[in-house]
Design a protein around this nucleic acid. Structure first.
Lengths: 187, 187
DNA sequence: CTTGCAGGTGAACGATCGTTCACTTATACT
DNA sequence: AGTATAAGTGAACGATCGTTCACCTGCAAG
C-alpha cells in the first residue's frame, strides 16, 4: 500500500527528518517494530527509501523533487509511474550559491519582453560584475532597476526588454548589485 | 562562528537529515561530544536550530528558504541581514498538492506573450476541469498542447498567447490534463 | 599574580536506536 | 481440509543516541 509511504513522507515534510521505527509504528498503527522493519525493507526494494550504514532511513523522493515529464507535446501521464522521465529538485536546479542568493519581487514592466512580468519573483545572485546579455539588478544614477546588461566595446549600458523604454546610458557609473539567475511565477 | 552552522546545514542538504553529535564532531574537528553539545545550545539560542523532546536537531532554515527582498527598486542589501523582508520556501510557494504536481519542459512559442518561453519549466497540477483564463495542458484532436482555456457561454476553446497562432476550436472534445500553476526559468 | 570564564577533553549514564529471533495470525491456493 | 506464504506480535540484543559530570586549558580583567 502506497498509503504507508505517503504517511512516512508526510512525516518527513512536517518534521524535516525521517521518522524512527517507533514513530512509524504509531503512525501506521502497528504494534511491533518488526512489522515496521519488514515494511521498510519492502519500501527499500521498491526504491522509495534508502538506508545508511547505521540503518537510518533516507528519503529518495524528498519535498523538492517533482516528477519531470517530457515536452508539453507528450502530455500528462494518467498514472503516477507512467512515462516520468526524471525527477528534479527545484532548489538544486535554481540555487547554486545559497549564501548569496536572494529573491526579489518584480515591479514594473521594463523586462516584459524577456518574459519577466510584474509580480514575478526573480532569483538573483549578489555579484559586482556581469557579462553582456546578463539580466542584472543595478543601481544607476541613484535608482535601482532590473535590465539587460550590455557591453559593446568600452560602452556599457542597460537595456530594457520593453520597446516603450529606452536604453539607459549611465551618467556616471553603474553599480551592479546582482545577476538574475532565474524567474518564478505563480498563477 | 557561522562557519560551524554552514557546515551543519551543508550536511543536512547532502544527507537530508541533521547530523548526530558524533558526526558534527568529525565535521568540525572536535574531539569530544560535549564541545558539540555546547555549540549546539549556542546555535539554539541564536535561533539557527531547534531541538525536539528527544534532543534531536531540527533545522530552522532549510534548503528551500531563501531571503525574500522587497521590490526591485529597493535594491540589493550589501550585508546579509540588511532589509530582508521575509524568507520564502520555493516549494511551499509553488507546490500545494504534491502528489498530483508535475513539471514539464516547454516546447514551442505558443504561450510566449504570457511570458512562457521555450525551455521553461511549467509546474502543473493534474486536473480534468479548468476555469476561464487558466493555462491548461490539454489534448485536443489528438495532440497535446498548452494554451489558455477559454469558456464563453457554452463555447469552449483554447487560445494561444501568440498572435501568430489562432484559437483552437476543438472538433470533438477537449481533454484537459493539467492546469498550470507556475513557471520556472533558469538563465 | 590570580581570579574568572568561555571553550575544550574524556569518560560514563540511561534512553532509544535498528536489528534479530521465535512465535502467532491471516490470506490465498490447491 | 490442508498447506505454504505473507504479515504482525513480543521480547531481547548490542550499538548509538543526547546528556551529564569532573576536569583541563588559554586568555583577558582586576
Amino acid at each position: 500500500m502506497s498509503t504507508y509511504s505517503d504517511k512516512i513522507f508526510s512525516f518527513y515534510r512536517a518534521h524535516k527528518r525521517m521518522p524512527v521505527y517507533a514513530e512509524i509504528m504509531k503512525l501506521l498503527g502497528f504494534k511491533s517494530k518488526n512489522a515496521v522493519y519488514k515494511l521498510v525493507h519492502k519500501l527499500v526494494d521498491e526504491g522509495m527509501l534508502s538506508k545508511d550504514a547505521q540503518g537510518r532511513l533516507i528519503p529518495n523522493r524528498t519535498l523538492g523533487d517533482l516528477p519531470l515529464l517530457g515536452l508539453v507535446e507528450a502530455g500528462i501521464p494518467t498514472t503516477a509511474e507512467e512515462s516520468v522521465l526524471d525527477t528534479l529538485n527545484i532548489e538544486d536546479y535554481l540555487v547554486k550559491e545559497k549564501d548569496s542568493t536572494y529573491m526579489l519581487r518584480v515591479k514594473g514592466d521594463s523586462m516584459i519582453e524577456a518574459g519577466i512580468h510584474e509580480g514575478d519573483l526573480v532569483i538573483a545572485v549578489r555579484r559586482n560584475d556581469a557579462k553582456d546579455g546578463d539580466i542584472v539588478i543595478a543601481e544607476v544614477d541613484g535608482g535601482w532597476t532590473m535590465k539587460y546588461f550590455r557591453k559593446e566595446g568600452n560602452t556599457i549600458f542597460l537595456e530594457p526588454a520593453n520597446s516603450k523604454y529606452s536604453p539607459i546610458y549611465p551618467e556616471y557609473d553603474i553599480k551592479i548589485g546582482a545577476v538574475v539567475k532565474g524567474v518564478i511565477r505563480k498563477y
